[in-house]
């Protein structure tokens, strides 16, 4: 027979106590976020180094797994790809024209200087969110490396997300495909403003929503959307992605559509953190006037 520990309190009451404590904790951490920071950093500092280690092993394993499982697929894919190359090379020429055009437009909006002028820091993605509901991840740089909350995070040339929490040696990034994320954007070509908001239902397809575009805006699928001047957290002019499936709302006053992000969220290893926080106080002052 198993020995029972001699606890005389009914677990029922312990459950009630825990529930009460949890509810209190929720309120406390909601009201006084700073007060909970020490607890977070104790756990985080202990866990993130281990995660970093395992993550590198995991990356290797998934590489090997991919290699083994995809061998058959690769042969088939190879044939398909060869066919695709032909069509792509044709498309590429078109795109190059587009790129030239895009560069022109960047110069026009004098975004080019700003874009290259932002000071950046490279960081490695340590771990991703532990559940299937949110899209956030941890990077291996923190306040010691000069990072702060609200700094913008990019991968390649596209916006990835924003830092929502900073600790000494690591920080948490909420990606723009997260359900709670919403970014004020603007169409590069027409300067029409819009909102780019993540949506869990679409996240798996790798697309996000754009809403609140002016109904009269002359926009087409494939137009680039960048972060807007009016955003109070995102620096202006960072490429978010390309619009698609645009259509009028039933009210005819606004348009909505989807957006393919410029950053590849399925394979995030290294990200760039722009170590410049948007000074939104100026903006708020301006808005008050």
């Amino acid at each position: 027979m198993r020995k029972r520990t001699k606890v005389t309190i009914d677990p029922k009451y312990i459950l009630i106590v825990i529930v009460v404590i949890c509810v209190a904790l929720i309120f406390v951490s909601f009201k006084f976020e700073d007060k909970m920071a020490p607890l977070r950093s104790v756990v985080g500092n202990a866990v993130t180094p281990m995660q970093r280690g395992i993550n590198s092993i995991g990356a290797k394993i998934s590489e090997v797994m991919e290699y083994v499982t995809s061998l058959e697929k690769l042969v088939k894919e190879n044939n398909e790809l060869k066919e695709e190359i032909d069509s792509l090379s044709a498309e590429n020429k078109l795109l190059q024209q587009d790129k030239y055009e895009l560069e022109n437009f960047r110069k026009l909006y004098s975004l080019d200087e700003q874009y290259a002028g932002y000071p950046k820091v490279t960081a490695r993605v340590v771990s991703s969110d532990g559940d299937n509901w949110a899209n956030s991840f941890i990077i291996d740089k923190g306040s010691d490396d000069g990072l702060a909350v609200n700094m913008n995070v990019m991968a390649g040339d596209g916006l990835v997300g924003i830092i929502t929490k900073v600790n000494k040696s690591y920080s948490k990034v909420r990606s723009i495909i997260d359900d709670a994320s919403s970014v004020a954007g603007t169409f590069l070509k027409t300067s029409d403003s819009c909102f780019v908001s993540g949506n869990l239902q679409l996240a798996n397809q790798g697309i996000i929503e754009i809403t609140d575009i002016d109904g009269t805006a002359d926009i087409k699928d494939g137009y680039a959307v960048v972060t807007s001047q009016i955003s109070n957290k995102y620096l202006p002019g960072i490429l978010i992605g390309y619009a698609k499936d645009l259509k009028k709302d039933s009210t005819n006053i606004t348009q909505r559509g989807y957006l393919t992000p410029a950053a590849d969220f399925s394979k995030l290893n290294m990200v760039l953190v722009i170590t410049q926080v948007k000074d939104s106080e100026d903006l708020e002052e301006m808005l008050d006037k």
Partner: peptide, 8 residues
């Protein structure tokens, strides 16, 4: 502690 906005 690592992934949520509220503890509890």
């Amino acid at each position: 502690c690592l992934y949520s906005n509220v503890i509890g």
